[in-house]
Structure formats: C-alpha cells, structure tokens
Design a binder for these strands. Structure first.
Length: 777
DNA sequence: AGGCTCTGGTTTTTT
DNA sequence: ACCAGAGCCT
C-alpha cells in the first residue's frame, strides 16, 4: 500500500486518495495524469472502497484504454476483467450487446464506421431519388451525427426552413434504413445506450448501483451526449472522477464541449478540484513559453505548469524564405541532432495540416533520413480488409445492405449497377433487405444474385463449427478474394493483409479470453460465478445480470465490433528508428526530446478558417499550446515568408503566437525581420551554415487579405457596421457556407456574433467582426 | 468491367 | 499541386 503511493507529489497524492465523491482533476500536460487515474483505481480497490466490478473507467481512444488496463494489471495482483475499462463506444457496445432486446436491436447488430455510414446514406438517397448536388451526402452525415450528439431524434430536430426540413426527413429515412438492416453508426451506439438507460429504470438502477466509481479520462474532449450518458449512469452513490485539461481542448470541431468541465463542477456539486501543475516533461523555457502563450486565452479554468528541471535550452526560432528552405533547414538541424547522439524517434516534426508534410518528406528522403508519417489508412480500413469483413458481416447478419452492396459484385460476378438498382427496388417494395429480396429477381440478374446468396449460405453452413481464425480463413478463400487478388499485379500486399486478418482474429480470441477453440458463432457458456444474481439483487431484463465477460458476444460478433471500433494503427510500419512526422492534433498525448513546430504563419497556424468559428482562435492557441508542451528538451519554431499552397504561392506573415511568447525565451536563428526589413547575414547557433542567407533572397510582399482582417483598425471598422447591420430572421450570404438565415444575435461591437442557419452547413455562430457576411433578401 | 479524363476540393479526426 | 471521385469511353 505505501508503495502504491510512493513518489507521488502532494497534488497527485491528494487526487489519488480523495474520498468517494465527485472530483474534477485539472491535469496539465505532462503532469502524470494517467498515473493518477490508474493509481486512484488501484488505491480504491486496495483500500476496500470498491470491488473491481464497481469500477467504470472511460477513455476516448482505444490506445488510452489499453494503456490504463496494462498499467493496472501491473499494479494490482488481481484480474482487471471485472472492471469496465474502455472507450465510450466500446462500453456502449458492450451494454447494448448485453441488453440488445431492451435496446430494440437484433442480437447480431453491426457497427457502421464513418465510411460505412456515408455509403449507407448515399444508398438511401439514391433509393429516394434525392439530388445529391443539392443535398450533399457528407453534409447530411454531419447533420445526422450532430443531431445524435445533441441527443435528438428526427422528430426532435428543429427545422427552420425547407432545406433543413429535407435533412430531417432524410435523417428519418436513414434511421429507418439502419433499423431495418440491424446496423448502428458510432453516434447511435452512444445515443441508443443513453436511451436504454434513460427508459429502462431497472437497468439504470442496476448499473448505477454497480458502478460506484466512474473515472473519465480526457474529460475536455467529451461531447454533450457523452456527458449526458455519464450523468445517466452516475447514481446518487457514484463518485465521478473526471480528469481533463481545458487548455488542451482541441476537438471542438468534432463536437467536444469544454463546457462539460464547468457544467460537471456545477451539476455534480464538485467539492474537490485539484490541479496537477507539476510538469515532468519539459525544461523551463519550454514551459514558460507555453504558460505565456495560453495566458492569452480568456475563458480558462486557470493553471500554470512548473518544473524542477531547470530552464534548459532557449526556444529556437527559424525564419525561412520558402517552404523548401524551411525543409532544408529542418533536415540539416535534424542531422546535427542525430550527430549529437539523439535517436531519430526522439525527434518530431509537427505541422498544422497534413498537406505540409510533403515538402518535408521530400527533403528527408533526399537526405536519406528514415521517417514515419502518422495518419492515413488504418488496417481495418483497407479495401481488401473491409471486403473480407463484409463477407463475415453477411454471414452474421444478411440484412446488412452496406456489407451486401460492398461485396455482391466483388470479385465480379456479372452483377452490374442495373441489376442492383432492380434489386434495391424490389427490396423497397417488399420492405426487406437486398439479400432477402434476391428471390424476387428473375432472369440473368436473378440467377447471378441467386448464386451469390447460395455462396453466402454455403459459407454460413460450412463455418458453423469453425473457430474464428478458421472462419476468416475459410471466408477469404471461399469468397474468391484471394483468387481475385492473385490475378492483380499489385495484389500481393492485399493478400498479405487478408492473411493478416486471420492473424488479427487469432490475436483477438486469445486476448479477449474466448480461447482458440471457441466456435466463432456460438455464445460461450456464462461462467457460473457470474450468472448468480448480483449483490444489488435488482432484477434485470434479458435474463442478463451483467455484461462482465464477453459472453454476450460470439467471437465473430466481438471481432466485427472490434474491427469497427478499433480500426488499428494509423501509422506506417513501426520498428525502424525514424523521425516522427504528424499533425499537432495527432501529437496530443505524446512527447519527444526535440520538437519542430513548422509553418507558424498567419493563415496556416492559426488557420484562417478558425477565424470563422466561435472561439476558433482560442482553439488554435490551445493547439499551439499542445504543440509546445510536446517538447522535453529542445523546441524549434519555424515559419516561412512564402509557401506553396493549392498550387499557388502564398506570402505569409509570421504567426501572432510569436508575439505571445516572451522574447527572452526565444533565440532567433535568423535575423529578426523588422517590418519591411530584408534578410541578410547568418544566424549563429544553427546547424545550418552561416551563409545561407547571403544567397539572393526573394523579397516577400506583405500579406494582404488575412493580415488586414486581423488588424485592429479593420476589426473596429467591421464591428461598427455590425451593430447596424443584422437582425434575426434576416437572410445572409457567406462566401463559404452560402445562404443562410440569422437565428440569433448576441454581443455588441467587436464582440457581436450572429447565429446563422445555413442549409447544408448547419447552424453556426459567427463573429461579425471576422465573418464576411452579406445581407440578402 | 476496367481504365481513362475531367472536375472539384483542399484544417484538424476518434469512435 | 495533388488527390479522389464521378462520368465517359472502349
């Protein structure tokens, strides 16, 4: 017991040993957040506050969930199996599987990932003959997901014009289609689970009584629905332990609501707010820069990081003439760092947008420096893998039209677009799935489709007794996928990936406790100990007391869930020691000895689009804060006078963020560019040669549009117009979002904002001072 | 059915 | 500049 708490600082210790009450932990970057979370759980169990079965720990990503599980496994002598540790989606899936009837779902319901959802929407729209130019499927997808994240069903969404009315109709049609097919999208997992708990009192009471301690990681990233779900799950006796950092909230654009932190504090009457401000990652200058920068944000809960590590190196700043020069400098500097003994993987290059990586990759290739780019296709998102999964899904649930449409003619079986249209018509006529509509088809189309159905039926029969890996192996053969890719020139990689699915299946049944002998399509018998009535004595429907072990899912269902919910690594092959390239977003939670933050230019970072969003600039600043706090020892910030973007050269001014960091922390490797001054001379403490800038330079015209927008004068002028300009109900035109109608107004002068309902872009709050809105009829 | 050309879009992204 | 998706042609 004392060893559990050893080496915790006073703040951490206080957090870990808090009484069983709601608590909010403000955990700064590098402050040992995960350690506090896991130690808290271990401490609670060790001191008899709660049994493992009373623990619910929610994370945002699978990676975080796994890490927590692993650390706990190392801390506690007992199995972590009885605890519910997972992502919001993973836990909701688990609960829905256990109570599928109460949730109104088929036992074999499938999960649509983002891409599946989009193709489902497209198919639905095609069936209804909806103009996809007027109503872009992507926007409908966004509309549907935001509605669900607000907890709104189609009949609850307010539509203030014909356009939105149509979206609501389509939302309803999509919802009907999903229900008929027995599929749920990501947002649906959460909403369905939320509604299940809300409407089913015995179930709610049961889980509320069970989970005495609910711990939430990255609380600042939760959306409204996730918060509502937590509230629903937390009973009177539950202690919610929320850990987050408002300064690292960088996902507002996808629905994260930092406001959940203050809401939580208020609604749960939090008496214990603890700030973890001791940083164990970065040297002083780096931390000072981060602290100074984030001070410029208005609405903060307030936090200042400190370190014992000493000031360390200054923050180095490099100004380049072009993006190409920036990349060459970067490469030289990296070479020097490696020369000094740093390993490549301790070096990270961060950027605001993915498009920026290319120039730098090119330079790295040229210099022969191995590198790794994060982002891109993940394993379960690969075409061939999704094909294999689609066959498995059809075996499990033939009503899954998304899976059906995906592979009915892959490999090709002479089933063309025309046949599928007819089939879709028949399915609509008989209100059944495409699979079920096949018998109604006649002629050649009918026989080809019939053959496909026979093949699936045969697969289902032949895999009846097989284990999961055997099933996968059988399916990739019997579907003809392997044979198909053998005829393709680039098919070898794809075949390897298909084999890899078999391996993934093996790993899955092993790690999830099904065992290698478990038949893929049979429910494992529930262990006796767990089928006994539970301590609360509360009757639970479905005859399921609790979803403790993965018995509520067959190995196959579990594997398909796993594939949808955990798409696999989103990075290139690991292994080799390589320089790490990624967006700042992707870098959140990581740390590196040396960090280069590149492209620090107005318009790029902060991104120009952020000016259109409410509190957009503050989020950009938090993003910059995240970038800075990734660095342990060395931080480089670079910007260019010009760069190629969308095929055109853009001239940039350096990011305002430089002005928000005290000068004494910065060391300019290039001469300070005074406004209008030309570059000359060399830079001193850089691996880059002294005389780089003695080469002829391109005079950089100062930037126009973006720079002008942000000048105070322009701002003042705009706001004056703003006060007179608009009223609720008025039509407006926005250069990016098109026509919309004002649905709300607030603030005055430079603070004035309007809420505008745009058709396909949804409803947005815009700052009048920055948004270029025009009044229309 | 598969390969070609044209067109449009282009911040960040996990589940 | 570059990629993805749609439409068109063979």
């Amino acid at each position: 017991m004392p060893d559990l708490l050893a080496n915790l600082n006073p703040e951490q210790l206080a957090a870990v040993t808090l009484p069983d009450e709601p608590a909010l932990i403000l955990a700064g970057a590098g402050s040992g957040k995960t350690r506090v979370l896991t130690t808290r759980i271990a401490w609670l169990i060790q001191n008899g506050h709660v049994s493992p079965a009373g623990i619910l720990a929610v994370t945002f990503t699978n990676k975080a969930a796994k890490e927590m599980q692993a650390r706990l496994g190392a801390m506690l002598p007992i199995s972590t199996r009885a605890m519910w540790i997972g992502t919001f989606h993973g836990l909701c899936n688990r609960m829905l599987r256990a109570h599928y009837r109460d949730a109104g779902l088929p036992q074999s319901f499938q999960i649509l990932d983002q891409a599946d959802q989009l193709s489902s929407i497209k198919r639905m729209m095609k069936g209804l003959n909806v103009d996809d130019e007027k109503y872009p499927p992507k926007n409908l997808q966004y509309f549907i997901n935001s509605a669900k994240e607000q907890g709104l069903r189609p009949n609850e969404v307010e539509a203030n014009d014909a356009f939105n009315q149509k979206f609501v109709e389509l939302y309803q049609a999509y919802q009907d289609q999903c229900q008929r097919e027995g599929v749920v999208d990501f947002a649906e997992l959460l909403l369905r689970c939320f509604e299940l708990l809300k409407h089913n009192e015995p179930l709610r009471t049961h889980y509320q009584a069970r989970f005495r301690h609910i711990l939430v990681d990255e609380f600042q990233d939760t959306n409204k629905l996730q918060y509502a779900w937590l509230k629903m799950l937390a009973g009177q006796q539950s202690a919610v332990f929320a850990v987050g950092d408002d300064d690292q909230s960088i996902y507002a654009f996808r629905g994260a609501n930092v406001g959940n932190m203050s809401d939580f504090e208020r609604e749960f009457r939090v008496r214990h707010l603890i700030k973890l401000e001791q940083n164990y990652r970065s040297h002083g200058n780096i931390l000072d820069a981060a602290n100074a920068l984030i001070e410029n944000n208005a609405r903060r809960l307030g936090k200042n990081l400190r370190t014992d590590a000493g000031q360390g190196e200054p923050v180095r700043v490099f100004e380049a003439a072009t993006d190409l020069q920036e990349a060459s400098w970067l490469v030289e500097e990296i070479k020097a760092l490696i020369q000094q003994g740093l390993s490549r993987q301790e070096i990270a290059i961060l950027y605001r947008s993915n498009a920026q990586s290319r120039v730098m990759e090119h330079a790295l290739v040229g210099a022969g420096i191995p590198y790794r780019v994060y982002g891109g296709l993940r394993f379960f998102e690969r075409q061939e893998v999704k094909h294999a999964l689609a066959y498995l899904r059809l075996i499990e649930n033939p009503n899954d039209d998304t899976a059906f449409a995906r592979v009915v003619n892959f490999p090709t079986r002479g089933i063309g677009a025309r046949s599928l249209e007819l089939l879709a018509d028949a399915a609509r006529l008989y209100n059944c799935s495409m699979y079920a509509a096949v018998p109604y088809m006649t002629g050649k189309a009918g026989s080809n489709l019939g053959a496909f159905v026979k093949m699936i039926e045969k697969m289902r029969f032949e895999t009846q007794q097989l284990t999961l890996p055997e099933t996968v192996s059988h399916v990739i053969e019997a579907s003809g996928l392997i044979a198909h890719y053998q005829t393709e020139k680039e098919g070898q990689d794809r075949i390897e990936n298909l084999q890899e699915v078999v391996h993934a299946a093996t790993a899955f049944v092993t790690e999830e406790g099904y065992g290698l002998d478990a038949p893929a399509r049979l429910l494992a018998p529930r262990p006796a100990a767990l089928s006994a009535p539970d301590a609360t004595g509360i009757p639970v429907t479905d005859g399921v007391v609790d979803a403790d072990v993965p018995v509520e899912m067959t190995p196959l269902a579990g594997f398909l869930s796993h594939a949808s919910l955990e798409a696999g690594d989103n990075q290139a092959e690991a292994g080799q020691d390589a320089v790490q390239l990624m967006t700042v977003h992707a870098a959140k939670g990581l740390e590196f000895t040396s960090v280069f933050v590149t492209g620090l230019e107005e318009g790029l970072f902060p991104h120009e689009n952020s000016a259109l969003e409410l509190d957009g600039l503050e989020e950009e600043r938090r993003l910059m804060y995240v970038a800075i706090t990734r660095a342990k020892e060395r931080l480089y910030l670079s910007f260019t006078q010009s760069r190629m973007l969308h095929g055109q050269t853009r001239y940039n001014v350096r990011s305002r963020f430089f002005d928000e960091i005290p000068e004494e922390l910065l060391k300019f490797l290039t001469p300070r560019a005074q406004p209008g001054a030309r570059l000359s001379g060399g830079g001193g403490d850089s691996a880059w040669g002294r005389d780089w800038f003695s080469r002829p330079q391109v005079a950089a015209p100062r930037q126009e549009a973006w720079a002008a927008t942000r000048s105070d004068q322009a701002l003042a002028e705009r706001s004056r117009a703003a006060d007179t300009g608009f009223k609720v109900g008025q039509g407006v035109f926005h250069p990016k979002f098109g026509e919309g109608k004002i649905t709300g107004l607030e603030g005055t002068g430079a603070e004035a904002r309007v809420q505008v309902a745009f058709g396909r872009h949804g409803t947005k709050w815009l700052a009048l001072a920055v948004a270029k809105l025009q009044a229309i009829e």
